[in-house]
């Protein structure tokens, strides 16, 4: 009797289980086909070589050797890292005050309007926004025009367009809402009485910000850092359109390898290197932040 019952129970459990599996199967297959498989293919390609028109499928580390020895690739990788770190730093530093203002100084009933306004740049396509920056930063564009008109400079600045600077400016603008929103959310979650408690316990506004607000907002800041840093390192539209030769990034080289040079294995190798770099830098940032905000955990 008991045997029979447990057998039945097992069958029901298995039915539940198979139901669950059936439910996750489509997205799982989707993820497998469209994420894992291409990723695997890229890694596989990176160990092959291009033999003129055909691909030599013998396993070799030649591409990696070449990538590490060619100063051009290394320069592009380190420049991409520098540019995206600069973009991340500027975006997050500028996003924080905006998020802080909306969270702490905007009346609650106005907050959603503010968030809505912040997302307005998304109403136009990314490409159009990049082109607009090309106009704004141009040699005879409004920025130079204003600066010359004010008498601050005599000649229009040539270095603000077609350089690493213009890439940083354009990307920082494009990713601003992505940085503002997570920081805003983490600031919203902070219990307001904590600030009063900090003041009550003898700290000035600035010290309460440093000792209470900032540590509690760190998860949002970290999220903003990762959300900005990870995609910008692989961005290739912006450097292509406003970067000039000076602002070219690794993604442009990857594209060149795949398309123009018809060297998919080298492109794959550079992709793997760029991904590893993103992965390592992100991990370091996560670990550092976690160490910094560890206080609340038990020792």
């Amino acid at each position: 009797m008991a045997m029979a019952r447990s057998f039945d129970l097992g069958r029901i459990l298995r039915r539940e289980e198979s139901k669950g599996l059936a439910l996750i199967a489509p997205p799982f297959v989707y993820a497998l086909l469209l994420l894992a498989a291409p990723l695997g293919a890229i890694v596989l390609f990176s160990f092959w070589t291009q033999d003129f028109m055909t691909i030599n499928r013998t396993f070799t580390l030649d591409n990696y050797r070449e990538a590490f020895s060619d100063p051009l690739y290394m320069e592009l990788l380190s420049r991409s890292l520098r540019i995206s770190l600069a973009v991340t730093a500027i975006t997050v530093l500028l996003a924080f005050p905006v998020a802080y203002f909306v969270s702490f100084h905007v009346a609650p009933e106005r907050k959603s309007l503010w968030l809505f306004l912040i997302t307005i740049p998304f109403w136009t396509s990314y490409l159009i926004r990049v082109f607009l920056w090309r106009v704004i930063l141009a040699y005879d564009g409004p920025v130079n025009g204003t600066l010359v008109g004010l008498g601050l400079i005599e000649e229009p600045l040539a270095w603000i367009l077609y350089s690493a600077n213009s890439v940083v400016i354009t990307l920082a603008h494009a990713y601003a809402p992505f940085a503002i929103l997570p920081i805003f959310v983490s600031l919203e979650k902070i219990d307001r009485s904590l600030h009063e408690a900090g003041r009550d316990l003898g700290e000035s506004r600035v010290m309460v910000f440093l000792r209470v607000t900032l540590p509690l907002a760190m998860p949002g800041v970290l999220a903003a850092v990762l959300i900005v840093f990870i995609p910008t390192i692989g961005d290739y539209v912006t450097p292509r359109l406003v970067g000039g030769s000076d602002g070219t990034m690794i993604a442009n080289m990857i594209q060149t390898q795949f398309m123009r040079l018809n060297n998919a294995p080298m492109g794959a190798t550079l992709s793997v290197l760029a991904m590893s770099m993103v992965g390592i830098v992100s991990l370091v940032m996560i670990v550092l932040t976690m160490r910094w905000t560890r206080g609340g955990k038990s020792k």
Partner: peptide, 17 residues
């Protein structure tokens, strides 16, 4: 922060971090 008073808040306001 310059008053000789301290407060126990209704929510206790314990710093979570």
């Amino acid at each position: 922060n310059h008053r000789p008073t301290n407060m126990v808040f209704q929510s206790y306001a314990i710093f979570p971090h």
